[in-house]
């Protein structure tokens, strides 16, 4: 890989161009492979596409750029503390709109840190929700008959199902 390359250009699934630095791309194995392909390829004009929409890719790249310096050098405790605070702020975006997309992107791009963070955010949001709220955000149809529902309640006396 040529050391002169500091950033590569990628396309989102919507066809928008994004720049991502080499060190940030190292947070994701698939991105890293793409980067090596681009750098070693004879045909350097080809811009690789990432199957993530623009709105999500902006957030993913923002996360990568923030975490890359620490991931590459090893973090001190105070850095780790600061990064934790940044993560909390980062996840305060309009989560319900974009969180599932972030989860899928992090899974597809093999980004363990972002994936765990997004799972925890989703879990924190969900834990106090009612069953009907969960069905609404996941667009799930209730497939229980009323008898089956009653049976579930009987299995867990004293537990709230609303």
């Amino acid at each position: 890989m040529s050391s002169s390359v500091e950033a590569i250009t990628v396309l989102s699934s919507d066809g928008d161009e994004f720049k991502i630095t080499v060190s940030a791309a190292k947070l994701s194995k698939p991105l890293n492979w793409m980067l090596e392909d681009v750098c070693f390829s004879d045909d350097c004009d080809e811009v690789p596409t990432i199957e993530v929409n623009s709105k999500t890719l902006v957030k993913v790249i923002e996360y990568c750029e923030k975490h890359a310096p620490r991931a590459n050098s090893g973090a001190s405790d105070s850095d780790a503390e600061e990064l934790k605070k940044w993560d909390i702020e980062f996840m305060k975006m309009d989560v319900k709109d974009i969180l599932f997309h972030i989860l899928m992107a992090a899974n597809y791009l093999h980004m363990e840190g972002l994936y765990d963070l997004a799972c925890q955010t989703a879990a924190d949001l969900m834990k106090g929700m009612t069953v009907s709220q969960i069905r609404k955000i996941f667009h799930i149809k209730n497939d229980f008959s009323s008898e089956e529902q009653e049976q579930l309640r009987r299995q867990h006396p004293g537990c709230s199902f609303d």
Partner: peptide, 29 residues
């Protein structure tokens, strides 16, 4: 919403407290 793979749903649900999980058994089969 996008389709979340079973694997992703499992990874989220396993972070939840037991109280929530008992309730969420009645979300769907």
């Amino acid at each position: 919403q996008p389709y979340l793979a079973e694997e992703i749903i499992t990874d989220i649900l396993k972070l939840l407290p037991v109280k929530s999980l008992i309730r969420f058994q009645s979300v769907c089969k």
